[in-house]
Design a protein around this nucleic acid. Structure first.
Lengths: 199, 199
DNA sequence: ATCCTTTCTTAACTTAAGGTAACGAGTTTA
DNA sequence: TAAACTCGTTACCTTAAGTTAAGAAAGGAT
C-alpha cells in the first residue's frame, strides 16, 4: 500500500488533534515543517555517540532502540504507527547512548528541534502542544516502567500479548526476548511452558 | 534542622532556574502559588483508586511510590530532595494505580494543576517551563527505564550504589529490594556474594 | 532446486532468584 | 521486664533464567 502525502499529513494531524485544537494556519505551519522520509528495513537512524536533535514520528513501519552491551544488542523500545521517539539528545545535545534502526521499511516524520524558539514565540499553542505531548509521553513511559518493574518476565510477555498483540506478530522473537529482558532461549522455553499451562 | 520559608523558596527557585530565567514577578507568582506542606513519616499521600491532580516537589525528606499486588507492596520509585513526582492523574484525571507515602518526615510543595490554564495565558514562560521540565523528566525516566531493562538485579544494585548512594543509606533494605525487583532475601544473599567477590 | 542466512527450538548444565521458614538483633509497646 | 514488632540474615528446596552447543524450520538469493 502506498501512502499519499495527504494521507500522511492526516495521520499526523489526527495524532495532534488528541492534544489541542489547531487553526488552519497552525496546521499548515506544522505540515510545512514536517519532513517525511522513507527508510529501508535495516537502516540505522542513530548510532551510539552520535549527536542528533531529531525526533521521529512513525507514520508507517517500525523502529527500534537498542544498546550495545559488549557484543550484544539490548532492545529497549519499539515504536510503530503514530508513536513518537524523542531521544534525550534533542534536549541537552548529549551524544546518544543507544542505536535506533528500522525493523521494517518505514515512513517517518523527522522533526528537528532547531527552529523551535522562534516558532513557539509566533505560535504559542505549539509550545502548549509540545508540553501536552511531552507530559503524556512521560506519563505513559512512567506507567510502562512501573509495569515492567512489578512483573516477572512471564507476566511481561503475557502483558505484551494483551497490550500490543501486533508486536508479537511483526517482530522477530529474539528481539522480543531482548525487549522482555531475557534470552531467546528463555522465551522459547517460556512459550512452551505457557502452552502446557493452557491445556 | 529547620527550613525557613525563605530557604524553601530558594530551593524551588534554584531548581526552576535550571530551565528558564524568570523575572521577579514571575518568581513571585510561583512562590505565591506554591503550597508548602509538612508530612509525618508514614503518611499516605495518595491511594490507589484516588483521583488527584497534585504534583509533589520534595524540599526535604523522601517519598515513595508503590503498587499493591495481592498483599505485597511493589516499590517503583523514590523521590528525594529537589525531585518531582508528577502522577499521571494530573493530566487525564484517571484514578491512581499506585500509592504514595512518606518514608521520612518530609516537606513537600504540593502543586495543583487546576489553575494552570489562566496562568499559562498570563505568563507564557510558565508553559515553557512546564514543557522543559516535562521533557527533562521524560528523558530522565526513559534513561532510567533503559538502564533498568538492560541490567541484571546485581547490576541494578551496583548502579544504585553508584548513582544514588544516599538511597542505600536512608532506605530500609526491604524497600530497596522491592525497588530492584527482587525479594529482601535475594538482596541479602546478593550482598553476601558481592562481599565475597571483592575479597 | 540448492545453498545460505536468519530465526526458532531443544537439551544439558550452571547460576541465581522465589517461597517458606526460622532465627537473631534492635525497637517499640504493654 | 517481658512481649510484640520490625528488619535483616540464613537455610533448604523449587523454579526459572543464563550459557553453550547443536539442530530444525523458514525465507531469500543465486
Amino acid at each position: 500500500m502506498q501512502l499519499t502525502n495527504d494521507k500522511m499529513d492526516q495521520i499526523l494531524l489526527n495524532f495532534l488533534a488528541k492534544y489541542v485544537i489547531l487553526s488552519e494556519e497552525e496546521q499548515n505551519v506544522i505540515i510545512d515543517l514536517a519532513i517525511f522520509k522513507s527508510f529501508r528495513k535495516g537502516t540505522i537512524l542513530l548510532k551510539e555517540g552520535q549527536r542528533s536533535k531529531d525526533a521521529y514520528f512513525v507514520l508507517k513501519g517500525c523502529i527500534r532502540c537498542y544498546y550495545m552491551v559488549d557484543t550484544e544488542e539490548k532492545t529497549t523500545a519499539f515504536y510503530t504507527e503514530s508513536e513518537t521517539l524523542n531521544p534525550p539528545g534533542a534536549l541537552n545535545n548529549t551524544p546518544s547512548e543507544y542505536y535506533v534502526d528500522c525493523l521494517e521499511d518505514s515512513i517517518l516524520i523527522v522533526a528537528s528541534s532547531e527552529t523551535d524558539e522562534e516558532l513557539f514565540a509566533k505560535y504559542p499553542i505549539l509550545e502548549k502542544l509540545c508540553r501536552l505531548v511531552s507530559e503524556d509521553l512521560h506519563s505513559k513511559s512512567q506507567i510502562a516502567f512501573d509495569n515492567f518493574k512489578i512483573s516477572t518476565p512471564e507476566q511481561r510477555y503475557l502483558n505484551l500479548l494483551e497490550i500490543r498483540p501486533d508486536l508479537a506478530q511483526r517482530i522477530p522473537q529474539y528481539h522480543l526476548a531482548s525487549y522482555l529482558g531475557i534470552t531467546p532461549q528463555s522465551l522459547s522455553r517460556m512459550r512452551k511452558r505457557l502452552v502446557r499451562k493452557v491445556s
